[in-house]
Each structure stands twice: as structure tokens, then as C-alpha cells.
Design a protein around this nucleic acid. Sequence first.
RNA 1: CGGGGUGUAGCUCAGCUUGGUAGAGCGCUUGCUUCGGGAGCAAGAGGCCGCAGGUUCAAAUCCUGUCACCCCGACCA
Length: 525
Amino acid sequence: MSNPKQPAASAPTTAITPTREENYAEWYQQVVRAADLAENSDVRGCMVIKPWGYATWENVQRVLDRMFKDTGHKNAYFPLFIPLSYLEKEAEHVEGFAKECAVVTHHRLQPGTKADGKPGLVPAGELQEPLVVRPTSETIIGASFSKWVQSYRDLPLLINQWANVVRWEMRTRLFLRTTEFLWQEGHTAHATSEEAMVETLKMLEVYADFAENWMAMPVIKGEKTEGERFPGAVNTYCIEAMMQDRKALQAGTSHFLGQNFAHSSDIKFSDANGSVSFAWTTSWGVSTRLIGGMIMTHADDDGMVLPPRLAPAHVVIIPVTHKPETAQAVHDYCVKLAADLRTIHYAGRTIDVELDARDIRGGDKAWQWIKKGIPLRVEVGPRDMEQDSVFMARRDRGHKEKVSVKRDEFLATIVQTLEDMQSGLFARAKAHREANTQRIDSRAEFEAFFGVKNEAESEETSSGGSVKGGFALAHYAPDPAVEDELKAKFAVTCRCIPVDGNDEPGTCIFSGKPSSRRAVFAKSY
RNA sequence: CGGGGUGUAGCUCAGCUUGGUAGAGCGCUUGCUUCGGGAGCAAGAGGCCGCAGGUUCAAAUCCUGUCACCCCGACCA
């Protein structure tokens, strides 16, 4: 494939322009579009999740839902609308979310004159009390919990809901931060502080397990410092992943809420001795942001790369049928191959197959699937059929690197091949994180590692290849003032204080105070 | 809410300075030739130039107003 307009030495072409090196943020948008995962809606800040993206989310849901049920949780559904007064009950909670709430004030439209003087429909029937579109559901679920919990025998109460929420963000990006997004939120109530904390950490573990073993995205489990804590929580735990541009992505959170929401929602129970106590609650969630994490962890300059275990389809069969005399036979052969593949079990379901018999050119077709990130592509033409073999390409290898495999062998090894890709993706992502994680032992080293803010920004827009930083592991005695300064000067935040048990005494590189372990610092999404 | 920018075909944009009946590329439709890795040629469909005023014989173009969106900041899963 040569480009007549360019000299022979022209750079290799990529399916996505710009490349990650050239402009990471724009590359991300282009991958989402080229992979047909989602698109912008006419509604500001909202996205349309397209079938390929939604099917990926459905796989996330299916696997996580099983994990939640296996840990004793039940699904339920609570209203989209939250009375304003509910939100006002928990002081920190209001403060945290008030600035980004969509508020419903009317319940009817009627013909009238709009603000711009034109005739049209105008809101009528003002509500006595405005309703807030849930930015999260602690308060309204708390209201139910207070009714459901009377006795210690009602505890623990382990509930999850799959829902949409709305947070009126200033700046949005597909999957990573949209005004409306899909998520799950777990809400639990317990008799003791200890039990609630065990739950909080158990679900953190579930998230880490899912991220690493299903998304192939290595994560660091840790606790947030005060400034990054969920509004109203006593402790917030998180999983943090490193994206290919070395920025951190918070991929999931689990909160120990203490008795804060039990107080504000009046969740009380009588214990075995007949004395009344407030319950201890937790909440935890992951969202469609995970899809953004998958993209930024695995995708390359040719588009999406899906971890096989969560891919909407594992393999696409592309019949090569441009010779009319063999077209029908090839097609029949492919239908049979698809049927046989669909009997094979993999990662909790059967192999999902796309048989792409569309009447478009083969090269174009193959590239569409490359961009969508399907793990395996197999071409079957008359020559392959004669030899009873398929021509297979893996998405984690070069797009020209194809091998002829006997049909039986292909069927016998496909599970192993997919698992191989799955673990390969994880290993690659982990190696990238480790290569860009540094132990930092002084403030000077820290500043050199991240550079000053303005410098970093100009680098980002021009050549992403020289962006400084990554994960810095430094001793730190938590202090909000220090974090404010780091954010202002370096656009760096304390991502978390890891809970991996690797305690190590030292001194804070900012204050010189004693520190019992290293924290993770990074630029973040 | 501050600072910058942009509204023209489904998408990306040119045209505007210097007014003269609407353009390109991609995509789409049809036909022919191609076809084991992003095809070529030909024909075709598709736009009240964001909206409202004004200037003018004449406005995508100049003027005024307005709305929307985008980017940068403050805020965030």
C-alpha cells in the first residue's frame, strides 16, 4: 500500500489519527468514534452509547452483578427523583453535590411565550418541593433503609442498584465524564462499625478483582485523603489505574460512611439487649467510566483493543466470496464454523461470533473490525475451505500478521488463544505502569518528576511523548494545604494511600513529619 | 461565572478581508471495472450559509443584536 503523494519514506499509516503520541486526548475521541462505541448527543454533555459500546457495558454488568450476588447482595431500584429536602439532610453531602444537580421544578408544559419571546411550550404546574435528579442515591435509599431496618435481625442489609445518575459537570468527555452516566451503586447497613468496614474493603476487593481479571487493567487499591473523599463519607477507598498517557484514572470507589447517613436518614435498630443504635452504612460504585478505562489502557493507534473476557464478540468470520462459483459453499462453511464456535464455553458464556457477510470490500471490512477491537478475525475463502483451515489474525498482534490454522485446531485452541490475549494485555498494562512508577524521596525529586504545571500543559498539546510524570510513590503525612499547593503548581493530586500492607516507615517529603507508608501521586482524569 | 473561538451538505471544512444566484473532500445511492488487506472511473441525491433585524439594486460575505456549541480556567466517578 503506497501513497503516491508521499515519498517512499512516509510514516506507517495508522487507522486512528492523530496517534497517541501526537495528541492523546484527540486520539481517545477518535477511538471511541472509530470503534463505534458511542457518540455525542444533541443534549450537551450526554452521550449515546452505541450497540458495540453498550454490549461491552452489558458484559461488565453481567460479571459484576454475579460477583455482587455471590457476596450476598440483592438488586433493587429506587427513584430517579430525590426530594430536595432529602439532599439537605447530610451537610457535607449537600455541599459536595449541590453545584452539579439538575433540578425539576415543574410537572407540566403548556403553550405560552418562551424566554426568547417566541411562542412554544413553557413549564407550568410548579412543584411544591423541587426534585433533584439523583447524582447518587445515599439519601433516598437511606429513607427506605430507615423503614426497613428495625431490629438487629434486619442487618446486615445488602442492596445494589443498577441505574443512571446525573451530575452537571462543566467539562465532559465520552465515557470518562458525562452529564448522565450509567453505574451501579451498592448500599449496605450493618450493626457494627467493624462489619461495615469489612464490607467496604470486601467490595474494594471485588472491584480490584474485576478490573484486573476481567478488564485486564492493573489497579492500586488505596484510601483517599481527606480532600478527595466522598462528600459525607468517613473513609473513601478506591482503585486507581494508570492510563497510557501515565495519568491516573479512578476506576471505582467504596465508602465507609460511618453513622453519618444513618443519623441523617434515621436508620436505627434495636440490638439484642433492646437498646437502640444507629446503623453503620457503606456505599460503593463503578460506572461507564470503566469503558473509558479499558480504552485508555488497551487501545492502540489502530483503534480499540478489547479484553477478550468482556468483548461483545470474540471472533468475526469474514467470508471471502468474490468468486461467484464458490460463494455459496464458502458462506455455508462459515455458517457451520460459527455454529461450532458458539458451542464453546469461554469466560462464563459461549463464544460470541460475528459473521460479517456484508457486501463491502474485504480490506475495508477487516479494518472496521480492527478499529472495533474484536479479539480475533478469521478469513475464510475458497483456498482455506479446500484445506479445511481458516486464516486467523489476533488484535494484539500486527494487522498483517496472519496465520493459517486448521479448522479443528482453531476450534480446539480458541479458548487458550483468548486467555493468552487476556493475560498478555494485563501483563503489558502492568509493565507500563511499573515502568512509569517511581519511588520519590525528596521534594526536589518530586518537582523534577512532574515539572511545573504550565510546562506540562504545553507538552500535552504538542508532543504527548515527552509528558512528564507517572506514579510517584512518596512518603506523605496527609495535609490538605500541601495537596492544594501540589494541585495548583503541578496539577498533581494524591491519588491514594495504598492498602497493600506494604508499610514502611519514613518521613514526609513535604513536611518532614513521620510517615508510615508511601502514597501515590499523579496527574489524573 | 471569567478569557478566547466557531456556527455553510450526514461528517470535516473552504468561501467572508475586496457583496454579484452555493463549493471541496469524505460518506451515501446507481452502474461498470476491480477484488486474499483501507479500490478506480462515471453518474446522482443532498444546504433558506445558527436566528432576528439593518445597510444595499443585490448579503454566506458588511453592521447591530441574539442564541447555540467548542476550547482554556474554577468543579468532578
